[in-house]
């Protein structure tokens, strides 16, 4: 394949690592105490990315849909777990809630984009599926962790108001729908905010990448627009699902607020 971009050699990579010396220098001069974390973060980033490069190179040669599906499931599971790991509080079953929400939302959205919008042949072509799924997952997990955190915090801080409504004869939905809505809204806001300034303040990474690789900017923009719609829909569905699951978990069928199901995450 003829490439229309400059290949970065390992020597050039080493040269770019000099940039991190700016951080190390600042940390040492100002005694920020970050040198150790910086070194670890740098090493992790480099190793993780080099490894994923190798994995992707292997993956793109695969022609067996099952391999791609299994890899997609692994990515989805990691995203579902990571979303929960960012929350302050947990309840029993929270990992399953998150996993199912991420799975359903990303499968729907990515499936629709692959088969319906971009119409990739075959439908599982990893060159398209894996990057698109990855972008949807990364954003959905962010929305889910924000929404979950907000929902659980809202229930704990507004327990008195919620129980006041329950004692007056409110159903669990009447007592909690404000907190449900609030949590879904909070989960969706980052996507809306990023769409607002996209192209003005931020040049999205995927689009930048395609342009560097020699794609026509107009074509790259079209991909970016599709991916943003995918992210918006995926995040909305994922947050909606996870908050609804949490609602059913934390409000019993007897219209009780079960904060005793919550526990603090161990850090």
């Amino acid at each position: 394949m003829e490439s229309r971009y400059i290949i970065i050699s390992y020597g050039q990579l080493a040269l770019s690592a000099l940039l991190i010396l700016v951080n190390v220098g600042l940390s040492m001069a100002l005694k920020l105490g970050l040198a150790r974390s910086l070194v670890i973060a740098t090493l992790r980033m480099v190793v993780q990315l080099l490894l994923i490069g190798i994995v992707l190179e292997w993956l793109f040669t695969q022609d067996n849909p099952w391999v791609i599906v299994v890899i997609s499931l692994v990515m989805t599971s990691v995203a579902g777990m990571a979303a929960v790991n960012r929350t302050q509080q947990r309840f029993v079953g929270i990992y399953w809630n998150s996993l199912l929400s991420v799975l359903a939302s990303s499968a729907l959205v990515t499936g629709f984009a692959m088969a319906g919008i971009i119409q990739v042949q075959p439908w599982y072509d990893p060159q398209y599926l894996i990057p698109l799924l990855g972008m949807v997952l990364g954003n959905t997990l962010n929305g889910i962790s924000l929404g979950l955190d907000r929902f659980m915090e809202g229930l704990a801080s507004q327990q008195d108001q919620i129980e006041m409504l329950l004692t007056l004869g409110a159903t669990r939905w009447e007592a909690a729908h404000h907190q449900v809505r609030d949590a879904i809204r909070v989960g969706m806001i980052p996507t809306i905010n990023s769409m607002m300034v996209m192209g003005l303040v931020s040049l999205p990474g995927m689009m930048t990448g395609q342009i560097l690789a020699g794609a026509n900017p107009i074509d790259a923009v079209r991909y970016q627009i599709v991916i943003m719609f995918m992210i918006a829909a995926g995040t909305a569905l994922g947050v909606f699902g996870v908050v609804l699951f949490a609602y059913y978990r934390l409000f019993s069928a007897d219209h009780q607020l079960r904060l005793d199901h919550l526990y603090q995450a161990r850090r």
Partner: peptide, 19 residues
Amino acid sequence: TMPTYRTQVMYMPQRPAAL
């Protein structure tokens, strides 16, 4: 049904909440 029961037997906590 629970909401109806709670309109018949109503609890008023010591530190009431308001909206």
